[in-house]
Computed example of a mutant assay.
Amino acid sequence: MINLGTNTIFRYKQFTNWTDTLHEVPESMWLQPIPEGKASIGEIVSHLQNWDSYLISTIIPAITNGEGMTFPDFDSFNRSAYEYARSGISKDHLLDKFKQTRHKLVDILLAETDVVAKHVTVNGIENCPHTSTPYSLLYIIHEFNDHDNHHKNQILAVI
C-alpha cells in the first residue's frame, strides 16, 4: 500500500491516544448533551465504535466478496449507538470497547491492503460527489479521520 494509505490508517489508530484521555471526564458530564439537543460525549464514543464495528462486520466482508459498500440510514444507525451509550454501559467499558474495536479494525486494514485500496461503489455511487475521488475503503477511512476530528473538537469545546 502507498505510504499515504498507511499514514491515514495509523492516524485512524492514533485517535485512541486522545480518547484514552476521556477516562478522566467526570461521570456527570459523560451523558450530558453537548450542546443541548446534540449527542453527549458517551453517545459520540458509542457512535464512533458502532461505525468501526460496522466496517468490520459488514463493509470489509462485502468488499472481500466483490461487492460495493452499503451504508445504512445514518439517523437510525446513530440513534441505536446513542441508546447503547445510555443502556448502563460504564464510561470506562465503552472507552475500552471503542479502543479495542478501533485497533482490531486497523489491524485488518493493515493486513488487507488489496481490500483497502480497491475501488468500489458506495450505495451504488462510484465517486464521491464532493471531490470526484473514486471510492475505496481507504477513502472512507480518510473521511472518518475528518469525522473523528469533528467530534474531538465538539468534545474539547465542553471539557
Score class of each variant (00 low, 15 high):
residue 3 N to C: 09
residue 4 L to C: 05
residue 4 L to K: 12
residue 6 T to R: 15
residue 7 N to V: 15
residue 9 I to K: 13
residue 9 I to C: 14
residue 9 I to R: 09
residue 10 F to A: 09
residue 14 Q to E: 13
residue 16 T to H: 13
residue 17 N to Q: 14
residue 20 D to Q: 08
residue 23 H to I: 10
residue 23 H to V: 07
residue 25 V to C: 02
residue 25 V to L: 05
residue 26 P to L: 00
residue 28 S to P: 02
residue 28 S to Y: 03
residue 30 W to T: 00
residue 33 P to S: 10
residue 42 G to T: 03
residue 43 E to G: 06
residue 44 I to R: 00
residue 45 V to M: 05
residue 50 N to L: 13
residue 54 Y to V: 00
residue 58 T to M: 03
residue 61 P to W: 10
residue 64 T to S: 15
residue 64 T to I: 08
residue 66 G to T: 03
residue 70 T to E: 13
residue 79 R to W: 08
residue 82 Y to N: 08
residue 83 E to C: 06
residue 85 A to G: 01
residue 85 A to W: 07
residue 86 R to Y: 11
residue 89 I to N: 12
residue 89 I to H: 11
residue 92 D to V: 14
residue 93 H to Y: 05
residue 94 L to R: 05
residue 99 K to G: 09
residue 103 H to P: 00
residue 105 L to Q: 05
residue 108 I to C: 09
residue 111 A to P: 02
residue 114 D to N: 09
residue 115 V to E: 01
residue 116 V to D: 02
residue 116 V to C: 06
residue 116 V to E: 04
residue 119 H to E: 15
residue 119 H to L: 04
residue 120 V to M: 03
residue 123 N to D: 12
residue 126 E to W: 11
residue 128 C to T: 13
residue 136 S to G: 06
residue 136 S to F: 05
residue 139 Y to L: 14
residue 139 Y to C: 01
residue 141 I to P: 00
residue 141 I to H: 02
residue 144 F to V: 09
residue 146 D to M: 06
residue 147 H to T: 07
residue 148 D to F: 10
residue 151 H to P: 10
residue 155 I to N: 05
residue 157 A to P: 03
residue 157 A to Q: 11
